[in-house]
Structure formats: C-alpha cells, structure tokens
Simulated assay, not measured.
Amino acid sequence: MASRESNIDVHISSDLVPLLDDLAHGNSVNDNVRISIAISLFVAKTVSLARAAEIAELSLNDFIYTLKIKKIPWGEYSEEDVVQDDIAVKDLLRELGEEKNG
C-alpha cells in the first residue's frame, strides 16, 4: 500500500504543547504530533505495532521503547495464549514425568 504525504496545518493550543512533549519526546512539535497519533492508533488497535512505528517514523525498537517508558503495553497475551501455555506446560510436565519413570 503506497502512502502519499500531505501537509496539513493544525492549530494546537499552546497549553497542549507540553502534554505532547511529555507523551512523545520527539525533536519537534511535528514529531510529537506524529508519534502521538501513532500511539493513539496503536492503542485503539487501528494499526499494528509495526505500522504505528512507521507512522511515528521511528524504528520498531524505538517505538516499543516509547511505549514502555509510557507504560503502554505493546504485546498482547490473550486468553487463548494462556490456554495454549497451560497445555504446553502440562505436556512438558507429563513428558518429564515419563522420562523420570521410564
């Protein structure tokens, strides 16, 4: 999917600029807006982690670090993952028990 860049002027109240600086830690207000949008889209599950990093114009590692310092979970551990892990642990314990007894 090819994306094209557009320049759009957005007027931001001066009292929001420090909030953007605190959230994104970019080098400019434009960086902070772009990173903030990427974080919002990721948190809303509108885009993937990799796509959010692209939108933020950060490496995947830098985007994950940004999420971590803001205590925003970047990986999901679903109920299905828990069930699959429980099954794997039980299978492993059974195999270890069989090796010990056999």
Results as ranks from 00 to 15, higher is better:
18 P>Q: 09
47 V>H: 08
68 K>P: 03
78 S>E: 04
75 G>L: 10
42 F>E: 03
17 V>I: 15
46 T>P: 01
57 E>Q: 15
36 S>L: 12
40 S>C: 13
20 L>E: 01
60 L>A: 09
11 H>K: 13
72 I>H: 08
31 D>I: 06
43 V>R: 04
15 D>V: 06
54 E>W: 01
9 D>N: 11
20 L>G: 00
50 A>Y: 09
48 S>C: 10
59 S>Y: 06
50 A>R: 13
26 G>W: 01
68 K>A: 12
75 G>N: 05
33 V>F: 02
28 S>M: 09
51 R>V: 15
50 A>I: 13
63 F>E: 00
15 D>S: 06
68 K>G: 13
66 T>V: 11
32 N>E: 03
34 R>V: 06
37 I>R: 06
50 A>V: 15
13 S>N: 14
29 V>E: 01
63 F>L: 02
58 L>A: 05
20 L>F: 15
25 H>P: 04
45 K>T: 14
45 K>W: 07
40 S>W: 13
34 R>Y: 06
58 L>I: 06
15 D>N: 12
40 S>A: 12
64 I>Y: 05
54 E>V: 04
70 K>L: 09
54 E>S: 15
11 H>R: 13
42 F>S: 03
55 I>S: 01
66 T>G: 02
48 S>W: 04
24 A>Y: 01
59 S>Q: 08
75 G>K: 10
78 S>W: 05
34 R>G: 02
65 Y>S: 10
38 A>I: 01
53 A>R: 04
13 S>M: 11
33 V>D: 00
24 A>P: 02
66 T>M: 15
31 D>W: 07
34 R>Q: 14
59 S>D: 12
55 I>W: 03
62 D>G: 07
19 L>Q: 10
60 L>S: 11
48 S>M: 10
44 A>D: 14
16 L>C: 04
23 L>S: 02
18 P>E: 05
75 G>S: 11
52 A>S: 14
76 E>D: 14
19 L>A: 11
10 V>N: 02
39 I>K: 03
28 S>K: 12
78 S>M: 05
12 I>H: 08
18 P>I: 07
50 A>E: 15
68 K>R: 11
62 D>F: 08
49 L>Y: 00
50 A>Q: 13
24 A>W: 01
9 D>M: 09
64 I>R: 06
69 I>H: 05
11 H>L: 09
72 I>L: 05
70 K>G: 08
12 I>E: 05
68 K>E: 14
45 K>N: 15
30 N>H: 12
38 A>Q: 02
74 W>Q: 01
31 D>Q: 12
29 V>H: 02
11 H>G: 02
58 L>V: 04
78 S>L: 13
27 N>I: 03
67 L>A: 02
42 F>N: 03
22 D>Q: 12
66 T>A: 11
15 D>Q: 09
29 V>D: 03
19 L>D: 07
44 A>Y: 12
45 K>I: 07
75 G>I: 12
60 L>I: 14
61 N>E: 13
40 S>G: 15
24 A>C: 11
9 D>Q: 11
14 S>C: 05
39 I>F: 08
25 H>R: 13
